Amino acid sequence: MARKRRGTPIHGWLNIDKAAGVTSAHVVARVKRITNAEKVGHAGTLDPFATGVLPIALGEATKTVGYIVDDMKEYRFTVRWGEARNTDDIEGEIEATSDHRPSREDILAALHHFTGTIRQRPPAYSAILIRGERAYKLAREGIDVTMPERDVHIAALQLVGIPDRDHAIFDVTCGKGTYIRALGRDLALRLGTVAHLSALRRLRVGPFCANDAISLDKLAKLWQCPAEFQDLLPLTTALDDIPALAVTEPQAVRLRHGNDVAIPDQADGIVCVMDGNTPLGLAKMEAGRLYPVRIFNI
């Protein structure tokens, strides 16, 4: 007999503005305490020192997390020239220093080397699995970790400002798997110096934007009247780019039981199946038949 899940069945998304100094897991735990939701998850980890958009999925929305993780992301980050740190951010220990400070002209001339599909070596202090262990765990134990390079896509990278000779601020739009800490590190090396990130803020993840995000404290205050809460986004928020397909009641029953149904004259691909105004689940259209992939238990 399956154990009954504790909490309230709540289905949808929250756009949380993560504060500095807390982990993404801490945000998930706090949201769970505030909302008492049965199931809570996040889409795309943010480093503890970073701030900004952290999409939080509640209930059946957790089944759509993968679609947000794959979306393009936007960040604003500040590079501190002249200090390399073992974590590539402000929380690490200084490993090397340099007196060289790049000029605005040199920075602008280097940016094109870091757009498009590029090779990137992730930081040793990351959650990537190395021989079955998290890389950051091995690094903290003093084990020399060789991180394999991989392809990442950077759609845009621009210089926002130079507040002083030691710092420069950038905006970047990038795809899945890009480490902004590694980008700052590699940009500095290209410019003949060393650096780390002193600030990092995520401005957007797919449809979730920083301008619309709310803090955990605001969530706690607003959730005192859940019936009047206006910031819970629909489960389908993560599926904006996926076509919706309405089905009949008999077809909906078959799909819910894991059976395929005939849908003639429909293009192949993944669709969000709608039973009236209720999202039924994700399904794959292939050769005139619709096959259930993930059914939402709403």
Rank of each mutant, 00 (worst) to 15 (best):
S198W: 02
D217K: 10
G52E: 01
A57H: 05
V40F: 07
A210W: 03
D231E: 15
N277M: 12
T51L: 07
A246N: 08
P148N: 04
R165P: 01
H26C: 06
L111G: 02
L14H: 00
E286P: 02
A2R: 14
A213V: 01
T78K: 11
R33D: 02
T97G: 07
S103G: 14
N259W: 07
L282V: 11
A57E: 02
I130Y: 08
I169P: 00
L232F: 01
D89N: 01
F208A: 02
Q251F: 07
A135R: 03
A238C: 09
L108W: 00
S98A: 13
L138I: 07
F77K: 04
D88Q: 14
P243G: 13
E286C: 07
A156V: 02
V205N: 07
T115Y: 04
T146K: 14
V31I: 04
G206D: 12
M72L: 13
V271H: 12
R131W: 02
G59W: 05
V172L: 11
F208V: 03
A252P: 00
T115A: 03
A227N: 10
L280G: 11
I263S: 03
G82K: 09
I242E: 01
E286A: 09
V31H: 00
K39S: 02
R254P: 01
I162P: 00
S126A: 06
H257N: 14
K18G: 03
Y67D: 10
F49E: 12
V271F: 10
P55C: 08
L187S: 08
P163V: 11
S198R: 04
A19T: 12
Y136H: 13
F77H: 08
I94S: 10
F229S: 00
N36K: 15
H113N: 14
D217Q: 15
L157S: 07
A195N: 06
P226K: 04
P9G: 04
F49C: 04
R30C: 05
F77N: 09
R5T: 14
R289T: 12
F77A: 15
L157A: 11
L138H: 03
A199S: 15
L108Q: 14
Y75V: 07
W13R: 00
T23N: 05
A182P: 01
L219V: 05
I295N: 01
E133F: 13
P123C: 12
E91R: 03
T64F: 10
D164W: 01
D268L: 12
V172F: 05
E149N: 09
R76M: 11
L239M: 09
G52Q: 05
R121G: 00
G66D: 12
G21L: 08
A50L: 10
A29H: 13
V22Q: 15
R256E: 12
W13H: 00
V293Q: 14
G92E: 03
C272H: 05
R76A: 07
G161Q: 06
W223K: 07
K18H: 06
A19W: 03
Q158G: 12
